[in-house]
Design a protein around this nucleic acid. Structure first.
Length: 763
DNA sequence: TCCGATCTATTTTTT
DNA sequence: ATAGATCGGA
């Protein structure tokens, strides 16, 4: 007998034909291609409700999303449909959080304890950085972010350090990039994580895959558990996620994936659209449903979005349409500077709000990079419009919070070397560089953990004076005492105890600067958050784990949380400021997409290849389709970037919107057909203009090869792709701000930032 | 060992 | 611009 028949049946009336089919076919593989705003989340939640109605046990349903926020929202909506009790027991979470949970239970098969640490990207970059320096490699040749990215890509493709070193293609690529050491860095990095009983984000996927491949009985257990699998944002899955899903679904093949190739925006991180294309090969008898009716936006907005995406070559054919009103034309803001852009956007919000009596929460400002939030903030602050910023440095990434959490982590997992190094001399307790050096070296030599060395100094031949030895013993005793309290005290009690007796709180209190005060406040806020966690007790929001409110449990949750995940009540009626990436899946009545400038959006890093540019365009598509009623695009003629004044050019994406859809002056005003000297300011740095004349795009880099200008000196002769040949008059500044004044024949004197200018040294 | 001055990387996006 | 790392001197 259907358990909640009347509720679901009632709602089924709200589904259109395509949605209904996607909800109805619960058995066998299903792929739903869902255009923006076509009710994708609705389909997923109703599917879950439908399954429950048919009598499927909630424990047998797994629903995977990309962000915690999406998971939370889905959970709420399911609970609305079927009631809290049933809804609560469905496994709904992000890939990372669900797999972390599995690994806490099953990690022992792979040699991991259940209390393994999770390193966030800051932690892993830090580790990679220290490995690079240990190996005395040139950080110019091996920038740690490059190396980290390379390793992360390998891991997301399930390439182990051994496989990496054995892969001729990869090795050749690294060698021709003159970075042959990456394979060794990767190997050391991997070992070091192991030694610390730690996993990075990629390991959560990689190890889950290993677990399921190597231990058939474990796989079987989870295959039996997850009889019905649903995946949101399938276009953003990477290779590892794809293979894990394939394994999990192999028995029942009850897998339903929902995605939109036009909204694939995580290719840079290893997401692979071909996972969508592979679906039909893996499950030849799959059912395909397309959701093409947009319920979210006006006709104008849908049309603009369709228009934009039609510039992309790679796409699955579909026609998104809407029955909604035509709506107003797209707004357009042309500012002279980033600051003015912030003011104009804020003014525009103010007007719309006043004229139409709208809440602040109806508005969102979306941008390409987090750094752009600053000028927006200033604009809103001037008009006293409340706003909230998502992204940027997350709360848990603040220094003081990391300092505190390091103690928590170390108390939970003594092998966590990152936390050990962070906490051992913060606050200063006289365990300095020399001492740590000795310990690090001993740990490496004996290939044991630093904690092990710390507690057996003599055994590992670490020679320290008695003072240092005492200090270390005291530290170790303190950590052990924290660990001993773990099961006795609740999370809040223990957290406060640690904050006080570690000296962290005292250290920041004594700073006595505005900054120090705010750090103390943040620590207090963190403690309050933990208090809430303790008090809430069994929220049991994920699956079947018993919840006792210990600090260890808190830390397991926190590792995968981002700042987007806890919204305060007082944040409800505020304008939302966020990157487009974090806006995916959200919608707002009024949306501003700002900073539509070449080299910013599309990003300068993504204009080299067609596929990268197409990803930027999809990102623009995502931005546009967040808007329900009204969309405004904005662009500034100049902008501070890296603390440097730069003249900018309107984004090519603006040209790709049909003039009839947008309310803006004629294009000729936007694109003066003059050189870069229009603004006549010689101090201004002109970003490389995009090719106005047809230039074979692939040949552009080859015909002009810029030199390394690190050793550029006065008197040298150089060539510039645009200004031609010239002589260096002055070299000034350092590092990224190093600039040269060059006299170009027939052009005159130019001041160039070497970081940007493509100069060839010719004599 | 500690402190201040100086240098350097960061800015593409996130779990 | 700005935070963090590094360096050099007390």
């Amino acid at each position: 007998m259907p358990k909640f028949g009347f509720i679901v049946r009632d709602f089924l009336k709200d589904l259109n034909n395509d949605q209904l089919k996607a909800v109805d076919v619960t058995e066998g593989p299903v792929m739903v291609i869902a255009g923006a705003g076509s009710g994708k989340t609705r389909v997923l939640t109703y599917r879950i409700a439908n399954l429950l109605q048919k009598g499927v046990d909630p424990f047998n349903i797994l629903s995977l999303t990309f962000t915690n926020k999406a998971a939370k929202e889905m959970k709420e909506r399911v609970m609305q449909l079927v009631g809290d009790h049933e809804g609560r027991n469905v496994w709904m979470g992000t890939f990372h959080s669900v797999f972390a949970k599995i690994l806490r239970i099953e990690g022992k098969h792979l040699g991991y304890p259940s209390n393994f640490s999770i390193y966030d990207s800051d932690d892993s970059k830090k580790l990679i950085r220290s490995i690079i320096s240990e190996k005395s490699l040139d950080t110019k040749v091996y920038p740690y972010s490059y190396v980290a990215n390379r390793i992360s890509m390998a891991k997301s493709s399930l390439v182990s350090p051994e496989a990496y070193a054995a892969n001729a293609e990869i090795i050749t690529a690294d060698e021709s990039a003159r970075k042959p050491e990456i394979k060794n860095i990767y190997n050391t990095y991997s070992n070091r994580l192991r030694r610390a009983d730690a996993m990075d984000f990629d390991d959560l996927l990689f190890n889950t895959y290993l677990l399921f491949s190597k231990f058939a009985e474990v796989l079987l257990k989870y295959q039996r558990k997850f009889k019905y699998i649903m995946v949101d944002e399938y276009q953003d899955t990477n290779h590892a996620q794809y293979l894990i899903l394939k394994k999990l679904a192999a028995n029942t093949e009850n897998i339903c994936v929902v995605g939109d190739d036009a909204q694939s925006i995580y290719g840079f991180r290893g997401a692979n659209i071909t996972n969508m294309l592979n679906f039909k090969h893996d499950y030849p008898d799959y059912k395909l449903f397309k959701l093409e009716q947009n319920y979210r936006s006006t006709k104008n907005i849908v049309e603009a979005a369709n228009h934009i995406i039609s510039y992309n070559k790679d796409q699955i054919k579909k026609k998104v349409w809407t029955n909604n009103d035509k709506g107003s034309l797209l707004g357009f803001i042309h500012a002279s500077s980033d600051n003015e852009e912030g003011n104009l956007v804020a003014n525009s919000v103010f007007e719309l709000k006043m004229n139409n009596q709208l809440p602040n929460s109806d508005f969102a400002v979306l941008y390409r990079t987090n750094a752009q939030s600053r000028s927006m903030e200033e604009g809103f602050r001037k008009l006293n419009i409340p706003y909230k910023i998502y992204g940027g440095t997350s709360f848990y990434n603040r220094k003081e919070i990391k300092d505190l959490l390091a103690y928590f982590r170390l108390a939970i997992n003594h092998n966590d070397e990152d936390s050990l190094q962070r906490s051992i001399n913060t606050p200063a307790r006289g365990i300095g560089k020399t001492t740590m050096e000795k310990i690090t070296v001993a740990a490496s030599e004996h290939d044991v953990n630093m904690w092990e060395v710390l507690n057996n100094l003599e055994k590992y031949g670490v020679n320290l004076n008695s003072g240092a030895t005492t200090k270390i013993t005291n530290f170790s005793t303190m950590i052990k005492s924290f660990a001993a309290e773990m099961k006795k005290k609740d999370a809040y009690e223990l957290a406060r105890h640690i904050a006080i007796s570690s000296g962290i709180l005292k250290m920041y209190r004594e700073e006595d600067t505005p900054e120090g005060i705010s750090r103390v406040e943040n620590i207090e806020e963190a403690l309050n958050g933990i208090k809430e966690f303790s008090e809430k007790g069994a929220e049991a929001n994920e699956g079947d784990l018993e919840h006792q409110g210990t600090l260890e449990e808190f830390m397991q949750d926190v590792a995968l949380l981002t700042n987007q995940d806890n919204e305060d009540e007082e944040d409800k009626d505020k304008v939302t400021l966020m990157t487009i990436h974090s806006a995916k899946g959200l919608e707002f009545p009024y949306v501003f997409v700002v900073g539509l400038e070449e080299n910013l959006f599309p990003s300068i890093q993504s204009i080299a290849t067609r596929s990268e540019l197409e990803e930027e365009r999809r990102l623009f598509y995502v931005a546009i389709t967040r808007a329900e009623k009204h969309l405004t695009l904005s662009f500034a003629e100049s902008r501070y970037r890296w603390g440097q004044f730069t003249i900018t050019e309107p984004s090519r994406f603006l040209d790709e919107i049909d003039d009839s859809l947008i309310d803006r002056p004629k294009k000729t005003i936007l694109r003066p057909d003059k050189g870069g000297d229009l603004f006549g300011n010689e101090a201004a740095v002109v970003l490389p203009k995009r090719n106005l004349k047809p230039v074979s795009s692939s040949g552009a880099g080859k015909s002009f090869e810029a030199s390394d200008t690190g050793g550029l000196q006065t008197g040298m002769k150089v060539e510039h792709p645009k200004f031609g040949k010239g002589k260096v008059m002055v070299v000034e500044g350092n590092g990224p701000n190093k600039k040269a004044t060059v006299f170009f024949n027939g052009v005159g004197q130019k001041s160039l930032l070497l970081r940007f200018a493509k100069l060839k040294i010719i004599g």
